[in-house]
Amino acid sequence: MSQPANVVTADTFMTDVVEASARVPVLVDFWAPWCGPCKQLMPILDRLAQEYGGRFQLAKVNTDEQQELAQQLGIRSLPTVVLFKDRTSVDHFVGVIPEAQIRRLLDKHLPASSDGPLERAQALKASGDFSGARSLIEGALATDPQNITYQTELAELRALDGDLEGARTELARLQGVEPNHAAVKRLAALLAFSDVIAANPDVMALRERAASNESDLDLQHALAVHQLLGGDVEPAIQTWLDMMRHHRGYKDDLARRSLLQAFELIGDADPIVSRTRKEMARLLF
């Protein structure tokens, strides 16, 4: 089952819609309690969100309560439904349209569905449905209990669900079994960054502090971690490269170690990794 739709306000729109759409497309339903067509459309969108199994996140904006936000976004008729992807609006429709037409809009922009349990679990994880993702992986492990990738994915879901100690215990066990496995290295990187997130949970307050204290490397590092895990990779990478360039010795080469951990999360297939490795080589030698 998919996660229930997010109720979005002007204060959370950037985080819950724009930034979130870098990880998974976000379909935003602009509605009002007095709007009859809105009430017709809502159950259709809820059903599609469940059926698509994490391939998109559904969000809802009550325009009676968020009038200024609706005006800023140019919402003139209700219901209006807007699809955000990669931090920008990519499609929309107004009014109640046939379900088949909504499906065509979604299928045009959403990543292809996969029948594999890992891919389906990762789609659910990206939408925030950690319990649904965990159920899928636990089911997969029941038939393939020695699968290291499934085991690390389950540990990662534990961490995302708040059980950091359980995830660390599992990481220690996995490092004793397959220390060089890519998924195990990814989990180690995620848990290292999770400690930074736990120490700096309020990203909005962190942004303000980092902006007014540009020389505070701890704040800049923490913000870079938030950016990386939030999908905003470029500025995070640039922060650590700048730290390498000007503060190589800071905390036992923290910037270089952070970049290497970031590569484990991003994956070598992403061109930014090879570009950054070349830049690091120039700085190191």
Rank of each mutant, 00 (worst) to 15 (best):
H246Q: 08
K251A: 08
L171V: 05
G139A: 15
L58V: 04
R55I: 01
D129K: 14
L191G: 00
D195P: 00
L283W: 04
R275W: 11
E279K: 13
V233G: 11
M1E: 14
Q67I: 04
D115Q: 15
A70G: 02
Y150D: 02
D64I: 11
L187C: 11
P111C: 05
F285Y: 06
V28A: 05
R207A: 07
S127W: 06
A20D: 10
L254G: 04
M280C: 11
L259V: 00
E153R: 03
F193R: 04
F93Y: 10
A100D: 11
R207D: 09
A112M: 12
E19Q: 11
A59K: 00
T276Y: 04
W240D: 05
S131E: 15
N147R: 06
Q67L: 05
E165A: 15
L141H: 14
A183Y: 05
D29V: 05
R120K: 15
Q66A: 06
A182H: 15
L154G: 01
A188H: 09
S113D: 10
G267N: 08
L69H: 03
D195Y: 01
S131A: 14
A22P: 00
I97T: 04
Q57V: 12
T169E: 13
G116K: 14
Y250R: 02
I237H: 01
D232F: 04
A199K: 15
L160T: 02
A159E: 03
T276G: 06
Q57Y: 03
R168I: 11
L110N: 08
R245F: 11
L58Q: 01
T143W: 07
V82Q: 08
D144V: 10
H226V: 05
I237E: 00
K85M: 15
L191C: 02
V8E: 01
L48F: 04
E19R: 14
E138F: 14
P179L: 11
A262T: 07
A22N: 08
